[in-house]
């Protein structure tokens, strides 16, 4: 039996997506867009998280729970707006948004680092504010606009920001970088010409163990100039 991380056949997690070189802005932007595009808007199959039995509706899954797992909390569907796209997601109530993004939607730009809301690697933007997805419950996110790094990468408007990050090596191992990019985008949304101090303040919740801190201000200020020029 094929099951996809208990998500059902409608899940985006139906392949082994591996980033392919060459890694240009165009190619990576397209890969990010493809990841978003692969998210199905409607779920058609529902695997039981406890025993992997396949159902074809939430009602059927609920009935399966009553029969086979009485007393267990039945998963539920939430509708999330991810990068401008509404999609149904089957989750258990305790699932964090980070977990749903990775294991249900196939979006892995938000990274698992500290898993307790101190490092910023899993940052996403919810209704305009940078939010830590590792400490945000998915069920709290219904009806809110969620932007992930994939959404930023896929949007040509933000090419100057990505370009500047790459020109300035505002990354080493690169694991925390998407979290910084998301925080930077949230900053530029509310403050298009930030000072160095504003940048430091805005990014102070992001930890880079490789120590790229000075590079971010350089990159963001360069990007801000270009964004302003390009309107």
């Amino acid at each position: 039996m094929i099951h996809e991380e208990n998500a059902g056949k409608g899940s985006a997690v139906n392949a082994v997506p591996v980033a392919k070189s060459p890694f240009t802005h165009a190619s990576t932007s397209a890969q990010a867009a493809a990841a978003i595009g692969a998210i199905p808007p409607v779920l058609k199959e529902f695997n039981c998280p406890l025993c992997n039995t396949l159902s074809y509706s939430l009602n059927e899954l609920t009935k399966h729970y009553e029969e086979c797992h009485p007393g267990s909390v039945v998963p539920r569907i939430v509708v999330l707006n991810i990068n401008g796209k509404d999609c149904e997601v089957l989750i258990e109530p305790h699932w964090t948004l980070k977990r749903a993004l990775q294991f249900r939607l196939g979006l892995t730009g938000a990274k698992h680092m500290c898993d307790r809301g101190v490092c910023g690697s899993c940052t996403v933007i919810i209704d305009g504010r940078p939010v830590l997805s590792c400490t945000t419950l998915t069920v709290e996110c219904e009806g809110k606009a969620i932007t992930t790094v994939e959404g930023i990468a896929a949007n040509p408007k933000w090419k100057p920001l990505i370009d500047a990050y790459c020109r300035w090596d505002a990354m080493q191992c690169g694991y925390c970088t998407p979290g910084f990019v998301v925080s930077a985008k949230a900053l530029l949304d509310r403050s298009p010409n930030p000072t160095e101090d504003e940048i430091k303040e805005a990014l102070s919740g992001n930890i880079c163990i490789c120590g790229t801190y000075p590079r971010h201000a350089q990159a963001i200020m360069e990007a801000a100039l270009k964004l302003e020029t390009e309107g």
Binding site: V13, F23, T28, E150, I162, D169
Partner: peptide, 18 residues
């Protein structure tokens, strides 16, 4: 760098397969 900055780079912990 573009793969890292855009989040399309996958590390071991990111992989989820059917």
């Amino acid at each position: 760098s573009y793969a890292l900055a855009t989040g399309v780079a996958k590390f071991g912990i990111d992989f989820v397969v059917p």
